[in-house]
Computed example of a mutant assay.
Amino acid sequence: MDEKPAKAPTGAPGPVPPAIVVMGVAGCGKSAVGTALAAALGAVFVEGDRLHPAENVARMASGEPLTDQLREGWLDAIGGRIATLAGQGQGVVAACSALKRSYRTRLSGFRQDIVFLYLEIDPATARRRVGKRKGHFMPASLVDSQFAILEPPAVDERALTLDATRPVSELVAAAVRWIHRS
């Protein structure tokens, strides 16, 4: 199963948090931060990479960047999982690059309360991190193509930007504070 229910935090249950998409280029830490954030919130974690169709995975593994059209079905699969889980009263944290505003708009079409946690990182650090990964379909050679299309969230979007070089625990603590204030 793609989703991992997180252990509920101790104490009285609070309101279901908004659906959260942890976004950014490859190597920024979406999965690590998303998993830890879901655990901190007692939410379900959705790993967006697992929802790519086999064709997309094969293209990326061969060093070919995805087009907007190839991303549409993948974004819809993520948006659909978010909507289903949130509709069941689950808190949801999803990892998805969501590199362009149009991608974030598409995801928000599935659930109006989606907020974005943008993990900002520089190209050299992203290439280094992706180059060290074992068993992942995304080669370091595609990192630059992600930066080429990246549109960081604008001030009118519901998003928090964090420095992805900070420790996961600090990123999660900052995200939790922001979510509780939102």
Rank of each mutant, 00 (worst) to 15 (best):
N56M: 07
N56Q: 12
N56T: 05
V57S: 10
V57R: 08
V57W: 03
V57E: 01
A58R: 14
A58T: 07
R59W: 00
R59F: 02
R59E: 03
M60C: 03
M60Y: 08
A61G: 06
A61H: 12
A61C: 05
A61Y: 05
A61E: 06
S62W: 07
G63Y: 14
G63I: 06
E64I: 08
E64L: 09
P65H: 00
L66W: 01
L66G: 10
T67D: 09
T67L: 04
D68V: 02
D68Q: 09
D68T: 09
L70D: 15
L70P: 02
R71Y: 06
R71E: 15
E72D: 12
E72G: 02
G73P: 06
W74R: 07
W74D: 10
W74F: 04
W74V: 04
L75V: 10
L75W: 06
L75T: 13
D76N: 10
D76G: 01
A77N: 11
A77W: 14
A77T: 10
I78E: 13
G79F: 03
G79S: 07
G79D: 10
R81A: 13
I82G: 00
I82Y: 03
I82D: 00
I82R: 15
A83H: 12
A83I: 05
T84Q: 11
T84N: 06
T84S: 08
T84R: 12
L85E: 03
A86D: 09
A86M: 04
A86V: 02
A86R: 15
G87F: 01
G87N: 00
G87E: 00
G87S: 06
G87P: 04
Q88A: 14
Q88L: 06
Q90W: 11
G91Q: 14
V92W: 13
V93H: 11
A94S: 14
A94M: 08
A95G: 15
A95N: 13
A95P: 00
C96Y: 01
C96K: 05
C96T: 13
S97F: 11
L99G: 04
K100E: 05
K100N: 11
K100C: 03
R101V: 02
S102W: 01
S102T: 15
Y103P: 01
Y103T: 14
Y103D: 12
Y103M: 11
R104H: 07
T105H: 11
T105E: 14
T105Y: 01
R106E: 11
R106C: 09
L107A: 13
L107R: 09
L107D: 13
L107H: 03
S108P: 00
G109E: 08
G109C: 06
G109N: 08
F110I: 04
F110Y: 14
F110W: 15
F110S: 09
R111H: 07
R111Y: 05
R111T: 11
Q112T: 11
Q112N: 07
Q112L: 02
Q112R: 07
Q112D: 15
I114H: 05
I114G: 02
I114M: 01
F116A: 06
F116G: 07
L117H: 07
L117G: 01
L117W: 00
L117D: 03
Y118T: 04
